[in-house]
């Protein structure tokens, strides 16, 4: 199939930087093409395509980013990654048999918390999604959802009791979402969680979670396991949505007001021509 330029010429995560061992190449598939990532003896990391040509490379947020095309823009910025006192946690990839776009959309959704992450990120009867604000910021070409609030029994590993949690969501690239949520130990500050997705094919992907938290007490393993537990609960949904591709035809699935972010995300994808992992017309 032809992969549209907007999909080809973007950055995608291909490895976790810290886990690359010198002299031991790793291979991954990005949109059907096999890439090899190698940390050479001089500690330089290189990404090569199957034909031996060198691929673009960016090292940021603990991950190795590359492309099968020629990105004309730098990788998106996460200013919070540079803030003092945050702990950076790489949670590792989770393979999901679903469109990368379905995975991002699920990350933007809060209404499922009481049913999929029961007694952790949500619990009945606290199911109501209050109105929140969504905009496509044309100057930066990103989708933003702000003023999102939801009751959570255990908002994070560091949470000791239920609380109303404030959220913000940001979509800086079709296969990336970053959320900001109330930090339980520091109610005035935001914890930041990024979801970086590498499309293997239109219906298969690896999703990497990355966190920049204010949490000095939890051990690393517990933080990773908490995030993986949440994501595996999501995976049981994602692998059972029909169709696997994300429908961009508004007639195909019925949203409500709680889905305003998802509606904006789908509209934004369509406008950008990001059709990889999407279904344009109902089949």
């Amino acid at each position: 199939m032809t992969i549209s330029d907007v999909a080809r010429n973007d950055w995608y995560p291909v490895a976790i930087e810290n886990l690359l061992i010198e002299g031991q190449p790793e291979t991954v598939v990005l949109m059907g093409e096999t890439l090899t990532i190698l940390r050479a003896a001089d500690d330089q990391i290189k990404v090569t395509a199957a034909d031996g040509s060198e691929c673009p490379l960016t090292l940021r947020y603990g991950h190795v980013w590359s492309s099968i095309g020629r990105p004309e823009h730098a990788l998106f910025d996460i200013p919070e990654a540079a803030e003092e006192g945050r702990r950076m946690v790489d949670c590792g990839p989770v393979r999901v048999k679903a469109s990368p776009l379905r995975v991002v959309e699920n990350f933007l959704d809060i209404a499922h918390f009481p049913f999929v992450h029961t007694d952790i990120l949500g619990a009945e009867p606290h199911t109501e999604v209050e109105p929140y604000k969504v905009e496509i910021r044309d100057t930066v070409d990103e989708v933003w959802a702000t003023k999102v609030r939801f009751f959570q029994p255990q908002a994070a590993k560091s949470a000791e009791e239920g609380q109303m949690t404030d959220y913000m969501y940001r979509v800086p690239a079709p296969c990336v979402s970053i959320l900001y949520k109330t930090s339980p130990p520091r109610p005035g500050a935001w914890d930041v969680i990024g979801l970086f997705v590498r499309p293997i094919s239109e219906e298969l992907c690896d999703a990497y979670a990355w966190m920049a938290l204010y949490d000095e007490d939890s051990n690393q393993t517990d933080l990773v396991q908490f995030q993986q537990m949440i994501f595996l609960q999501d995976r049981s949904i994602l692998e059972n949505q029909i169709p696997r591709l994300l429908p961009l035809d508004p007639k195909m699935e019925i949203p409500t007001r709680a889905d305003t972010t998802s509606v904006a995300y789908r509209r934004w994808l369509k406008r950008k021509g990001m059709t990889y992992g999407a279904q344009l017309v109902a089949r």
Partner: peptide
């Protein structure tokens, strides 16, 4: 049909309350 019209989730993963079937994704 084994498909929730909201976001396409298979309704066979759902649960019954009273005289209603609930989708597991958003209830």
């Amino acid at each position: 049909d084994n498909r929730c019209p909201h976001r396409g989730m298979r309704l066979s993963f759902g649960f019954v309350r009273g005289e209603r079937l609930s989708c597991i994704y958003h209830g």
